[in-house]
């Protein structure tokens, strides 16, 4: 599954990226394979999503979240 499928409060571990080219800025914000990601809030219209990953609170768009594969915890 991918990040945007988590419900609020649920967590997962980042497994893999599906991008053809991983955006460096995503990695630099701490969103790395093996890290725990928690869904904090979903904006109305289901986009963007507000997540906590590797100690950082960030918001990303659903189109990006769909490229990040996770294992649900």
């Amino acid at each position: 599954m991918t990040i945007e499928q988590l419900h609020i409060g649920e967590k997962g571990i980042i497994k893999d990226f599906l991008f053809s080219e991983v955006p460096l800025s995503l990695l630099e914000m701490g969103c790395l394979p093996g890290k725990v990601v928690e869904m904090i809030q979903v904006a109305p219209l289901k986009d963007p999503i507000y997540i906590r990953v590797n100690g950082s609170d960030i918001a990303i768009r659903t189109e990006t979240a769909k490229q990040i594969e996770i294992t649900k915890l």
Binding site: S25, P48, S56, I58, A59
Partner: peptide, 11 residues
């Protein structure tokens, strides 16, 4: 142009 949106949600 590739446009990648990511923002920090500060405390």
């Amino acid at each position: 142009a590739k446009n990648f949106f990511i923002i920090e949600m500060p405390t």
